[in-house]
Design a binder for these strands. Structure first.
Lengths: 206, 206
DNA sequence: ACACTTATATACCAGCCGTTATGGAAATCG
DNA sequence: CGATTTCCATAACGGCTGGTATATAAGTGT
């Protein structure tokens, strides 16, 4: 259990490590984010993290454990706009925050393009099936939260009464996933902005 | 240049090959379709195709050439619903045919789930960059055709005059890509049907 | 100064990757 | 028939994969 959060200050005996775990993990995340789980080789990771393989294995366990910790970091730092979006007062506000948040994240110049979840869950070999399952589970959790939010929105009158809240959740998820795919395919921010604006123009209710 | 299309009938001298090129290619397509370009190993391919590696190399060149031929087959047989969709008389008809066509294709029990283009273009290692570019080019061509169709639809009054046809093309593309991602993630056909119906309910114009 | 503990660096492991050389089998041509 | 051409099967190639054993360096507490 690591207590320290910054660069140094080892509390116990033994040779202190020469790198910052958090920074190394952030570097690993960027590699996974741009190349996917299987596309990221240990050589890619160690080079980006600035450490050697034994150091990586000592600090993180193995590739799979490293990915899971990187995924935790991703959700914590990068994708918490999702949670924030659900706090919007209206369903339209939720959709706005979700889409513009995704837009910012997918097109931020210092980030890889696209969504880590989409990149990882699509097209992975048999060996990475458990990784894929873990990612899908998190996506399902996020979608469930969105669904509950839209069910509430329907009760509050944000939608016409005959609206399919589940369909709308799937719809919003799909547009975000498509935005991720197009960002990965090289779409410009301006193009994705038009996609978001078009989608919001079609969004039902006030 | 192979002339024969069926099982046998070698026109020239030498030992005739013992497998059907078209069937082998179809099998290879299914492997690429379910595992992606890099996720499909030569062992996977040869096993599914029922041939050995030297036979594969003699008949198709190498892995990249095999993929390109499989991609040709995919576009020719599976994804020509796109071309057909653009022939619909109205923009709404285009959207309907496109979405239901994608729905049928992504959920057909005898096909892998999802879109080969999405699977291949997302998250590939550096070595497959040219493959990715080839796939993206075809996607860009398809999107360009859709864009032209919607520009015409706007002139014909299918949309309100202030409509962003380019945004709508990106929108429709995004919903289809999202549908592919969700199909690959294990969504049921019923779920995707609701996604399509919801999207069409939001689609502008008559 | 010493033993002890931990991190780093080098080198290595078996296994899979895409690809190909080699040797024999099966067909047509003369 | 023999000669030729093409295909199939085995096995191997160098290179890369994720993962590790070994040896050395750099700190700790006493």
């Amino acid at each position: 259990m690591e207590i320290e959060t910054a660069t140094v200050a080892a509390p116990h005996k033994g040779r202190p490590r020469e790198f910052c775990v958090d920074m190394a993990l952030a570097a690993a995340l960027r590699v996974f984010w741009s190349k996917g789980y299987e596309g990221a080789s240990m050589a890619d990771l160690t080079e980006a993290m600035g450490i050697t393989k034994p150091s990586l294995y000592a600090a993180f366990g193995n590739k799979e454990a490293l990915f899971n910790k990187a995924l935790d970091l991703y959700e914590r730092e990068k994708a918490d706009y999702m949670r924030a979006a659900l706090d919007a007062p209206t369903a339209r506000g939720v959709a706005e925050r979700l889409m513009y948040g995704a837009l910012d994240m997918y097109t931020c110049p210092e980030n890889p393009n696209g969504c880590l979840g989409v990149i990882t869950s699509v097209a992975c070999g048999a060996e990475a099936e458990c990784i894929r399952q873990a990612v899908l589970e998190r996506g399902a959790t996020a979608k469930r939260a969105m669904l509950e939010r839209f069910a509430r929105a329907k009760e509050e009158g944000d939608f016409p009464p005959d609206t399919d809240a589940e369909g709308l959740a799937a719809f919003l998820t799909a547009v975000n996933q498509g935005m991720s795919v197009q960002a990965g395919a090289g779409a410009t921010r301006a193009e994705l902005e038009r996609l978001v604006e078009t989608s919001l123009k079609l969004w039902p209710g006030r």
